[in-house]
Design a protein around this nucleic acid. Structure first.
Lengths: 151, 151
DNA sequence: GCGAATCGTAATAACTGAAGTTACATGAAA
DNA sequence: TTTCATGTAACTTCAGTTATTACGATTCGC
């Protein structure tokens, strides 16, 4: 079952935009994510509509962050992407007439609902600012001062 | 992102087999699940290898339950299916060189690992016997005694 | 033993949804 | 006005899943 990596992708794009200092074009972002610029535009459309980024046309145009990174969480980004399904496993059918299947669905729904609640709660606790800070920390460790031994 | 419904399907099949009284052929199971008998054989192969069901060839052959339903949980069934991926959302790539992506992956992995642990824990608490009991209860409610008003 | 029923499984086809690509329209800046 | 950039529809490609076909192996009843 192939995974939807749009959440991962847009987070990646947002952190690059944050670090870039000026608007990034779809072409530049596409290069970062090794994909096609049109895919970038498609994927970012939801974030633009939600007001998390701004896109501008024409020369010196491109994508810029339009929100406070400390005020936006992974949950917000997930919502801006249209709340895609989180689970790769699910019921054969919803609202089945078969009582056997109703029993199976009820049991699975219980478990998945609990896991989904936890996952979304976790998403809500991670801000984009926290991600950016984690990136900067990794960056600092990755390029230590001259002479500092690598851990 | 289409969902993997094999877990749901095999549970459905197991409950039908449990209620059936004699071996069910792949054709009969396929009719229950509106699919193809070869798909049934493929899907049940893991459960057979794990010893949860037995298949017998020839006339009057077919599939039978070969375990104590009270001793087998959804977690065991999930394992017998090869522990397919539970999440439809995931990282763009594992072990990326890009530090931005490393930070994104770390955050997402944290959240998904927690949700996965909870989900598997839930799976471990649900036995096939509990599912069968739930089905029987639904069945009793569905065909109440004559004169009993429907709830 | 023979024939029918049934599973086992490999190979292939058909279907599906996502991603990539092309094409062209729109808007902004110099 | 030309150029750079996004917006978006249409189309193509690709990968993964499921359905189907085909045929072999095993078991039962006669």
């Amino acid at each position: 079952m192939k995974r939807d990596s749009r959440l991962s992708s847009v987070l990646h794009a947002l952190l690059h935009m944050d670090a870039f200092g000026r608007p990034m074009t779809s072409d530049e972002l596409a290069a970062c994510l090794s994909t096609h610029p049109v895919v970038i535009r498609r994927t970012m459309a939801g974030l633009r509509d939600a007001g998390f980024v701004r896109s501008e046309r024409g020369p010196s145009g491109g994508w810029t962050i339009a929100c406070d990174l400390a005020a936006v969480t992974l949950l917000d980004i997930h919502a801006a992407l249209g709340e895609p399904a989180l689970f790769a496993v699910g019921n054969r059918s919803e609202n089945p007439a078969c009582l056997v299947e109703q029993a199976v669905n009820a049991a699975l729904d219980d478990a998945f609902d609990a896991a989904e609640a936890l996952l979304l709660q976790r998403f809500a606790t991670v801000t984009l600012a926290a991600l950016a800070a984690d990136f900067r920390q990794r960056f600092a460790r990755h390029q230590p001062l001259k002479g500092t031994p690598h851990a």
